[in-house]
Design a binder for these strands. Structure first.
Length: 202
DNA sequence: GCCAACGTTGGC
DNA sequence: GCCAACGTTGGC
């Protein structure tokens, strides 16, 4: 039987409706849970990695989207939700990772193009990502807009990431890690970019 | 609050 | 297609 709601998060892009280009949302939208608690200690921009199955929504599709931007809707995992809602902010930098793909790995760079706001698909009747238990007055699921910045010069594959000791701490590489939205350190970020500019080891 | 059953993720 | 790891549900 079908679950009453999606059990867990997958950064799937809905195949239907929500492909409407999210308006370039300004910060007018929902300054709600912004990180006033973070204080000055956290350097901006923060860096993140998002996963997407290219059969659902590839980086190429993001590049081709109006304004190269889309709502990152459909995340239905609480930890990822918290990151989206509480920690991501306009201007943050994002690696775009293709999972369940012919070539698995980091393929591009995107930026966070809005602050967080409630994922509208949770309230859409009949939508795959509808959550009937979510209260509009206190939305359960949040998202940000993502804008493609550029494809990497080449894909940095999962195998390469695993083989690089400097990246052993990446959340992506932790045993059993399934988070579809996850933090990346500045060091990890720089290392992946370096790899992308270098020919893969043969 | 425990925990078994179930569904999902995602590499292989 | 397989299946290990994980997250959620719901009976108790």
């Amino acid at each position: 039987m079908p679950p009453r709601k999606p059990a867990s998060a997958k950064s799937v892009r809905p195949k239907s409706a929500a492909r409407t280009p999210s308006r370039p949302s300004r910060d007018v939208l929902i300054p709600l849970a912004k990180r006033t608690d973070a204080g000055p200690a956290v350097p901006r921009p923060n860096k993140w990695l998002v996963k997407s199955e290219p059969s659902e929504f590839s980086f190429e599709q993001l590049l081709a989207a109006p304004q190269r931007t889309t709502m990152w809707d459909g995340v239905r995992n609480y930890q990822a939700r918290n990151t989206l809602r509480d920690s991501m902010a306009v201007g943050d930098e994002v690696f775009y990772y293709h999972s369940n793909a012919e070539v698995i790995g980091i393929v591009g760079v995107a930026r966070v193009a809005s602050n967080s706001y409630p994922d509208p698909t949770q309230f859409e009747r009949g939508h795959v990502h509808e959550d009937p238990d979510s209260d509009p007055a206190n939305p359960r699921w949040w998202l940000v807009d993502l804008q493609a910045v550029r494809a990497l010069p080449r894909v940095v594959t999962l195998d390469e990431l695993k083989a690089n000791p400097a990246l052993s701490g990446m959340v992506l590489l932790q045993r059993g890690s399934r988070l579809s939205v996850q933090p990346v350190s500045s060091e990890q970020w720089a290392e992946v970019l370096r790899m992308a500019q270098t020919a893969p080891r043969s």
